[in-house]
């Protein structure tokens, strides 16, 4: 079985789903089930007395085989991310943490310095750290050396639907990395997820593309199929490109006039 190994965990699904931006919790839960995902992200938020029942912990963990990966969204410094991670672990009981530190809401680009500092501290505390990072091969390697169990470089800006704008950098990260590389952010359509997997990514993390689709559960299923197909193609060995045509049919002449 071609499984994804992260830390001591093994997953058969290579699609990680975000749970934000859905029109309702029930649609989100249907999408999670349809996707077959085993790892979902959640965010910490203040309890609101006017809106009880917003808590996603119980409904998500009631789905068989689901592991939670809380994020540190809202943190703009390493110290804030570390505190968010510790609180999240109390609540989730999960060792996974998506370190996400983006100080500028205009572009939501991850802060590489704060992300590195937070990841280093959290890895030492025993978290399974999965940092959301710019597609920077040097940073990715430094995070691997700091004890992260995966790196999650962006395909393009969060929620932008710009796809694999960082493809060439992603290829370098994949080639150099000894830990799973998960493309996080920017994917718009299942074909982009398939392409990421064909490039050799170990998994993809999708949120907006599913959440804002016309039919989120069906789109979740489409992403799952694309991810599986892309992975299968990568494992099967994709043909090399050639600058010239290479015939698939015999060119020996039998229709010619000479006999």
């Amino acid at each position: 079985m071609d499984s994804l190994h992260i830390g001591s965990y093994t997953f058969s699904s290579r699609l990680i789903l975000g749970t934000g931006k859905f029109s309702s919790s029930s649609v989100m839960l249907e999408a999670v089930k349809a996707s077959g995902t085993q790892l979902v992200t959640v965010a910490l938020r203040r309890f609101n007395r006017e809106q009880p029942g917003d808590d996603l912990f119980t409904p998500l963990t009631s789905i068989p085989g689901i592991t939670l990966m809380p994020n540190t969204s809202g943190a703009s410094t390493a110290a804030e991310a570390v505190q968010a991670a510790r609180i999240a672990r109390e609540l989730s009981g999960s060792p996974f943490i998506k370190v996400e530190i983006h100080p500028n809401p205009q572009h939501l680009m991850p802060d590489p310095i704060e992300t590195y500092e937070a990841s280093k501290i959290l890895a030492k505390e025993g978290f399974l750290v999965m940092p959301y990072i710019p597609a920077d091969p040097v940073l990715a390697k430094r995070l691997e050396e700091a004890g992260c169990v995966s790196v999650m470089p962006l395909g393009s800006a969060i929620g932008s639907g710009q796809g694999l704008a960082t493809a060439e950098m992603l290829k370098i990260i994949i080639r150099e990395s000894a830990i799973p590389v998960i493309v996080d952010a920017g994917l718009r359509s299942p074909s982009e997820a398939a392409l990421a997997m064909e490039m050799g990514c170990d998994a993809v993390l999708v949120n907006s593309a599913v959440a804002v689709a016309g039919n989120p559960p069906v789109m979740a299923e489409a992403f799952a199929e694309a991810v599986a197909a892309g992975r299968k193609a990568f494992a099967a060995g994709i043909m090399e490109k050639s600058g010239i045509a290479v015939a698939t049919s015999p060119l020996t002449s039998f229709l010619g006039t000479e006999a």
Partner: peptide, 10 residues
């Protein structure tokens, strides 16, 4: 005092 829950997030 902060009272926090898990909500949707990517």
């Amino acid at each position: 005092v902060e009272i926090l829950i898990f909500a949707g997030g990517g």
